[in-house]
Design a protein around this nucleic acid. Structure first.
Lengths: 137, 137
DNA sequence: AAGCGATATGTTATGTTATTACGCTTGCGA
DNA sequence: TCGCAAGCGTAATAACATAACATATCGCTT
């Protein structure tokens, strides 16, 4: 069973459905995966899902994994983590681990400052095998 | 003018065409962008481009930018950079800067070691505005 | 309460990115 | 010269994402 996440009260119906789907999934879901799971709840078109995802991502309740074209619920229940988040994605079981590292953030900031580059958004995704899957192999 | 890159002698015709297209572009190209530019050279189907890209990426001659679904030639002319590479992508002009940072690599390695996670591939992409574009604004 | 703007919704159609499946060709070592 | 690995060509389709348009809902101001 997926553990419980905070579910803010001010979500719209669609946003709540989509976040619910993500919360109950053990691994990232694509927008179309989500759509398929929510057809029974009245969702019919991709756009309904993408719109909800946009809002959820904007609020930090969900994250987009660029290297997967998929989405996960934020792992931090009382969420809204600041700054850079790194994701470790297991190719075996699909599980995603989320962590922050101040040193990395600082290195990136240093590079940007030297180059005069204004950072707006950073994605960091590690692909590999988690301990459990290595064990099982 | 794009600066010159090393063009290995043992590329196949399609690989050479695709790498050539990337070398002459000032910004990342999607597979379909590449296809369009190479129709005059006889390429007709996406797969011809994707296959070439696979090989080029495998050899480190090109990189895939996950957050863009696009590709760039490796910036290092005598390429085959080891380890983790970070990309800074300007939203203004599309230019991509490529750099490595041993400290970041070491932090990631540390996290992985602690978690027992076996890293296979890491993508790090910074989106923002480059100095030139900030200047122009 | 009426009017208004901002936000969300639903639907259709379409655009963009990536892969599957199949068969042929070529180079090369056993 | 057989057989295999790698590459190539083509058609079809799958997977991911957005445009354009019409309607609805909610909170705020008057």
């Amino acid at each position: 069973m997926a553990h419980e996440h905070a579910m803010p009260a001010d979500l719209t119906r669609n946003q709540e459905l989509v976040l619910g789907a993500l919360n109950h999934a053990p691994a990232p879901l694509s927008a179309y995966d989500i759509l398929d799971r929510l057809r029974g709840d009245g969702l019919r078109a991709p756009l309904q899902v993408y719109r909800a995802l946009d809002k959820l991502v904007e609020r930090g309740l969900a994250h987009r994994l660029e290297s997967l074209n998929a989405f996960v619920a934020c792992a931090d229940a009382h969420c809204h983590r600041k700054g850079l988040i790194a994701f470790a994605i297991c190719e075996g079981c699909g599980k995603v681990d989320e962590f922050a590292d101040a040193v990395i953030e600082e290195r990136l900031g240093g590079w940007a400052a030297r180059e005069g580059f204004k950072v707006e958004r950073t994605t960091m995704e590690i692909r590999g095998k988690c301990a459990a899957c290595l064990q099982a192999a």
